[in-house]
């Protein structure tokens, strides 16, 4: 990851009118040290058994979240439930391709989530562009812009595949690997530079931790 730190992004609330700048924070996020030993393992267990999804259907993958939430597949069994506000949710499901306009909202929602936070990216289009590899408006890999914990391949991934992905996410969290928040903070400049390379109209506040 060391070679990623190249271009420092300007840390200013560009695009905001002056009177609103004070409302948002210019400081970059910081890393948080995990707790030690058995206590952290217990907390990780709790985090993995209570996954709250952010209710943001960013793409067509969101259509398979409906069956997943309802009685056929019933994700509540596994402690997974949707949550309407980013402040309270811990898992962000990227539902497929992300257009530039949506990517901006994805980044914003991701930054608003409280850590530790996890990202589950569905569909081939989040992995390498998939069907939209030559589209002028969709990004080709989401992990350039936010850290991703689990990819689920397919177009679209079936609910069973999603459940398998959630189990894999749980395994990662339990093993202490779900440190996307710290990774984002560590390589913050790199992520910001990537985001600003794509999102030209950066008319939104930079940070709001």
């Amino acid at each position: 990851m060391s070679e990623k730190k190249t271009i420092p992004a300007p840390l200013a609330n560009e695009g905001l009118p002056p009177e609103e700048r004070g409302l948002f924070c210019d400081a970059a996020p910081r890393e948080y040290e995990p707790a030690r030993g058995a206590w952290e393992r217990f907390l990780n267990w709790a985090r993995s058994e209570s996954l709250w999804l952010l209710g943001f259907g960013t793409g067509c993958g969101a259509i398979e979240l409906r069956p997943l939430m309802t009685s056929r597949f019933d994700m509540y069994r596994y402690g997974i439930q949707p949550r309407p506000t980013p402040r309270q949710s811990s898992v962000f499901v990227i539902g497929g391709y992300a257009s530039v306009k949506t990517l901006k909202r994805i980044v914003r929602s991701y930054e608003q989530m409280m850590g530790p936070k996890f990202v589950l990216a569905l569909g081939s289009c989040t992995i390498n562009g998939g069907m939209y590899w030559d589209s002028y408006n969709t990004i080709k890999r989401i992990d350039q812009y936010i850290p991703v914990d689990v990819y689920i391949a397919g177009c679209m991934p079936r609910p069973e595949a999603l459940l398998a992905g959630f189990q894999e996410l749980k395994r990662i969290i339990k093993s202490g690997g779900g440190e996307g928040q710290n990774e984002y903070a560590r390589n913050f400049d790199w992520y910001k530079a990537n985001q600003k390379k794509v999102i030209k109209d950066w008319n939104m506040p930079d940070y709001n931790w």
Partner: peptide
């Protein structure tokens, strides 16, 4: 307007495709 050229120039690609 060439969509592919724009996409290649703008969006990072995953190697191997």
């Amino acid at each position: 307007f060439d969509s592919l050229a724009y996409s290649d120039a703008t969006y990072a690609e995953r190697p191997g495709r």
